[in-house]
Design a protein around this nucleic acid. Structure first.
Length: 277
DNA sequence: CTCCAGGCATATT
DNA sequence: AATATGCATGGA
């Protein structure tokens, strides 16, 4: 099924490749193939038109992946980024971030997948995070369809399937010391000790505390899960975000040609600025 | 070879 | 409360 959106303040490539999502790949024709909630998606931007071609295999893909509302929500197309940018520009660092890559949007991704993916991200680089998540899906996820190159794509494994695995079974991931945290996280989800619903009634501060109680989840991962997997944008006070952006990400100023890095910074900034709307 | 990558748990001060 | 260290892995 095909869906088209008219978009503004939107850069598909920057949004998908800046390090917030790990299951999209760029194809030679400029489109992007991804697996989202079990659905295989081909996305392409042509000016202000975003075209999606969704292949939702029955029994694998979530039903809602065939609705326009789902994708509007996923790509955060309901949010007025023009208005946000006006606010970002009040701060010199944020202004540079916005100007560098003004089309990045914070995606609304699946909580559980985000939770596990960012556990994998610990002391790791984006390329390898991608490869581990991909391998994890190939080994334990359901076949979801085919990508542009004809290779099979797999859904992120459900928590039950992942929780049933052993350290040895995860060895092919080459995930190193993260394996116990991955399995531990999956078991928490599978055993319903942690679920997205549990967070809905919590303040962001309490949600953060809950996440920090999980083995393998520290402040950085908790923030990423809050931001990308739980739609929270106010977990930190403003001064902390600005300080992070400036000291951790740009110790020597904004880099000239590092879209991923700028993307991360912008995500931090987005998080910080949204507390002010 | 060393250093680092979207950190964290743990021990030590 | 702050700071130091080890950790699997693979690419630069």
């Amino acid at each position: 099924m095909k869906i088209e959106f008219t978009v503004k303040d939107f850069d598909l490539g920057a949004t998908l490749m800046c390090g917030q999502a790990f299951r999209w790949t760029e194809e030679c024709d400029g489109s992007y193939d991804g697996v989202v909630r079990g659905a295989v998606v081909s996305a392409k931007q042509d000016g202000d038109t975003l075209s999606l071609d969704i292949s939702a295999k029955s029994g694998v893909a979530a039903e809602e992946t065939l609705t326009e509302d789902f994708w509007r929500n996923y790509f955060a197309l309901d949010i007025d980024y023009t208005k946000l940018h006006d606010q970002y520009r009040r701060n010199p660092v944020l202004r540079d971030c916005v100007d560098f890559s003004p089309g990045i949007r914070v995606l609304r991704q699946d909580f559980y997948e985000t939770f596990i993916s960012f556990i994998i991200s610990q002391n790791n680089n984006i390329t390898r995070i991608r490869s581990i998540v991909k391998k994890l899906s190939e080994l334990f996820g359901k076949e979801a369809g085919e990508g542009a190159d004809g290779r099979k794509l797999y859904a992120f494994p459900d928590a039950e399937s992942l929780a049933a695995q052993t350290d040895d079974a995860l060895a092919p991931l080459r995930a190193g010391y993260r394996v116990p945290s991955i399995l531990g996280g999956a078991k928490l989800i599978a055993g319903n000790e942690i679920s997205e619903e549990m967070f809905s009634g919590l303040s962001t501060a309490d949600a953060r505390k809950k996440l920090l109680g999980v083995y393998g989840v520290g402040p950085k991962i908790a923030d990423c899960v809050l931001l990308f997997g739980l739609g929270r944008f106010e977990s930190f006070p403003i001064d902390v975000w600005v300080k992070r952006a400036m000291t951790e990400l740009f110790p020597d100023g904004l880099p000239e040609c590092a879209v991923p890095t700028a993307g991360i910074a912008q995500q931090y900034i987005f998080h910080y600025m949204r507390t002010r709307i």
